[in-house]
Design a protein around this nucleic acid. Structure first.
Lengths: 151, 151
DNA sequence: GGGATGTCATTAACTAGTTAACGATAACGC
DNA sequence: GCGTTATCGTTAACTAGTTAATGACATCCC
């Protein structure tokens, strides 16, 4: 049908597949690397906090944590001050793969934008941001925002 | 991180959620409407054929067919000429919701592109097509292609 | 015509997400 | 201090996708 949403779906799936293959080389599954990226920045978050940052439900994060625990990527520890809370701590191994994983992410980004001119890339970011704004209640994650700044 | 891939993922998820809510009103789940759209056009395809058109695996389509059969949306019938094949036929009910479902899809499209100028929309389609070309072995579904023709 | 090969759908086991229900623990009100 | 309420993580049941293994049926070739 070649309409925007169909193109979007297709591109999204292809990107997802490429990302999965990329991170799999380091024994990590797609989605797990997003958790890693959050915890590399701030270790010891709770499942709920990570879920919120990744825009997924808490149960999804709990299940991911269980798998990642089994894979030796993180450990759960009860918060000593509030026994309702669980805190997620990365293992030494998870910290050790930070560099190569980030290199893989950079390479994926390079490839995704390979056929786009800087101008097209700027347009794309702008369009994506507008779509996000249309559908999100929360504003679209303005770390150092993409708005119209041609970073 | 506000980089293109992150924006992409976020937009994709939001679009997916909006699409799910839209089709749910008609008792259909996300993904099922894609199957419906294929079968509305050509009823009686095999699971493998539908899977190929939707770029999903055959088992995924088989499972979707099972759920859709349980939901009264389609029936399976063995091909009389080749007993390996199963053919999927829509029920009367599935055919009856074609119009409202397509209206919902149009509305979703309208909303997704609400904040984009025609020029931005054209840029977006072009960029998405280029990303698809970068990652797909198959060319990106050229029904009446989006390439650079400013339809 | 009958055995090797190919082509289907299906099942199994998995990742990954959802909502709803549950259970433990804090925190608040009195 | 103790019951109610709120806040966590977890589990359960589901949709939706993947790859790998099965099994039924065609086809090819001899």
């Amino acid at each position: 049908m070649s309409e925007v949403i169909a193109l979007f779906t297709r591109a999204s799936k292809l990107l997802r597949g490429a990302a999965d293959r990329a991170v799999s080389q380091h024994g990590v599954r797609l989605g797990q690397n997003l958790v890693l990226e959050v915890l590399w920045e701030s270790d010891g978050l709770t499942p709920g906090e990570v879920a919120q940052r990744l825009h997924v439900s808490t149960p999804a994060m709990v299940q991911a944590a269980t798998r990642m625990e089994a894979a030796g990527l993180l450990t759960r520890r009860r918060d000593p001050d509030d026994a309702r809370l669980v805190r997620l701590y990365l293992t030494e191994h998870a910290r050790s793969i930070r560099e190569p994983m980030q290199a893989a992410r950079a390479e994926l980004h390079r490839r995704a934008t390979a056929r786009l001119s800087p101008d097209e890339l700027r347009h794309l970011r702008s369009a994506l941001t507008k779509i996000i704004q249309e559908f999100a209640e929360d504003p679209p994650d303005e770390d150092h925002a993409a708005e119209d700044s041609q970073g």
